[in-house]
């Protein structure tokens, strides 16, 4: 009995959380007091800026995630396994950098990018995001709990550190890496201020910017655009979900 009420409560909680999402989807079909596809046609056929924005978002998020993983995984591994003076302080410094609110850093960031001549290019948005300290901090977190014996064993077999990482480390923290990847993807996907301020040309803007300016297009396209906004990440996440499900067979034993 208790289980059922608890489960019911949980379901209610889940519904409460998803309500705004459903509201967004519902409103996207709403116009003139009844169900209509008008908003979608306004978006897909009249608001031409939508498509480049969509692909740009995909491009930025995709590139950022992939390159960041290549940068971050070795770095986190290094943090976990190397020892040198000041490592702790360096790590704390990383966390501090992570903390800086965007409003403050965006201006000096802009000046820096301008000095490098990157303003109004795609790199202005991609490069700073790649080196975000977030990935390092989080994955390092997960790497702490790694099984070192496997690594030791691998070291005896080969000298190539890359191979070691690839074969021994990644499998262990695969899920965590994937979780972080999804998160980074979502963050990059949601990026708003940086594209707005670092990119001047309309054809380089991403979907978040498009949505924030959706008022200036004809028709009510805010909600359909929002729906298209979260679909790709949802799809990505559903892959992760299935993957995660598979890895949770052990969890069943915990009941």
């Amino acid at each position: 009995m208790k289980k059922i009420t608890l489960s019911a409560l949980f379901l209610i909680l889940a519904t409460a959380f998803i309500l705004p999402v459903i509201a967004t989807i519902a409103t996207s079909f709403y116009g003139e007091r009844n169900f209509t596809l008008q908003n979608y046609t306004d978006l897909l056929f009249d608001a031409f800026a939508f498509y480049p924005a969509f692909w740009n978002s995909l491009l930025y998020a995709g590139v950022i995630v992939i390159v960041q993983l290549f940068v971050v995984i070795p770095c986190a591994f290094g943090f976990a396994n190397a020892s040198f003076k000041g490592k702790g302080i360096l790590f704390i410094f990383y966390i501090i950098l992570m903390m800086m609110p965007l409003q403050v850093t965006i201006l000096p960031n802009f000046i820096g990018l301008r000095d490098l001549g990157l303003i109004d290019t795609r790199l202005a948005v991609i490069l700073p995001a790649i080196f975000s300290p977030f990935g390092v901090v989080v994955i390092n977190q997960y790497m702490q709990g790694m099984n070192n014996s496997i690594i030791e064993a691998a070291r005896l077999e080969t000298n190539s550190i890359i191979k070691i990482i690839f074969h021994t480390v990644i499998p262990q923290v695969k899920i965590c890496i994937f979780a972080v990847a999804v998160f980074i993807f979502a963050e990059s996907w949601n990026m708003l201020e940086q594209p707005m301020l670092f990119l001047r040309s309309t054809n380089l803007q991403n979907l978040s910017v498009f949505i924030s300016e959706s008022g200036s297009y004809a028709g009510n396209i805010l909600f359909p655009a929002s729906v298209f906004f979260f679909i790709p990440v949802l799809i990505l996440y559903s892959f992760f979900n299935n993957y995660l499900e598979k890895g949770l067979t052990f969890g069943e034993l915990a009941k």
Partner: peptide, 9 residues
């Protein structure tokens, strides 16, 4: 559809 659309400023 994307191929059909362009933005020119």
């Amino acid at each position: 559809v994307s191929c059909k659309s362009t933005i020119i400023d």
